[in-house]
Amino acid sequence: MSQTTSTKKAPVTINTEWLSDCSGCHVAIVDMHEKLLNVLEAIEILHCPVLTDIKDYPKANIGLVSGAIRTEHDRHAAEEMRKSCDVIIAWGSCAVYGGIAGAGIVHSKEEIFDAVYGNNKTTISHNSPTTGISPFEKLVTPIDEVINVDLYLPGCPPHPAFIFDALLSLLEGRAPKATKESVCSRCNRTMVHTDVDKIKKNFEGVAEKENCFLSQGYICLGSVTLDRCMSPCPTNGMMCTGCAGATMQVLTEPNRDIRTEIADRMSKITKISRDDIISEIEYSAKSHYSYTMASKMIGKKPTFLIKKWIANTEAEYE
C-alpha cells in the first residue's frame, strides 16, 4: 500500500561524488543487487561519476560524498556538492575519518611524491608529474573539515544492507536501524579465557576457528570497531583491521583509545600484560590506526602520538 503511494511521489534526487578513495563505496551500491530496484523506484540519480555523464552539479535532495579531501579538486567538488544538495552524507570511512587516504598525514607531500615517482623501484620515470593532476592539499582531511556534513555513514565500504537502510530511512522519513554495536557482535567466535602469554603476529601460525583472536594472542580490532560490515573478516579467519572506524565510546571520550580498549579486554582474558599490548599496537600504529588517523576524533586525543610511534619503529629498522 505504502509502496504504491511512494511511487506516485516525485522521485528523490541524488547526487554522488567520488573524492580521494578507491571506488569501493560506489561499488557497494551495486552490491545491493535486486534490492537496488526497490531503491531506484523512488530515487533519481543525477550526478554520479560512474553512471551518468553529468559534469556539473544539478540541484538534488541527497548528496552522497565518498572519499577524503586530498587534492584541490576534492575540495572544489565537496564544496559544489554542499551547494547543490539539501542533505550531505559522508559516505564511507574515507569521507568520515579520512580512511586509507588519510594515512597520508604521517608523511609530507615531498616524501609521498618521492616514494611514488622519485625513488620507486617499479616506475621508469623519475619525475613527478607537473601537469594534468590536481595539486595536493597540505594535509588529508575528512570531508567535514571542509563542508558541513548532515549524516555520517562509515564503513569500508559500508555493507550494502546499511546503505540500503540509510537510503530507505531517508526516503521514508524514519530513523535508520544502524546500531552502536561492534564487529564482535556478529562474529561467531567465543572469547575464552586462556593462558596465552605472548602476542602473535598475524602471519604466525593458524588461528583456531572457534575461539576469539584476542584469546589466542592475535590483535584483532573487532571490539573497538563499529559494525558496518556484518563481520566478514573474523568470521572467515582474518583479524579485524578496524575499517569502519572506532566505536562511539572511543570516539567520544578522550581517555579511551583503540589501543587501551583492546589492551583492557585482551589482558583480562589472556596472561599478556596490558602494557605489552599497548606497546605492540603503538609499534604497528600505521596498521592499527590506518583508517582513522586523519580524523580529529582520534588525532586530537591527548595520548595519540602516532608520528612519535612511527619514528620509534623506523629508528629500530635503521
Binding site: 572469547m191 575464552v192 579465557h193 576469539c212 583480562k268
Partner: peptide, 8 residues
C-alpha cells in the same frame, strides 16, 4: 547473539 561469552 552478540554476547561472545568473555565473562568480562
Amino acid at each position: 547473539q552478540a554476547c561472545r561469552g568473555c565473562q568480562l
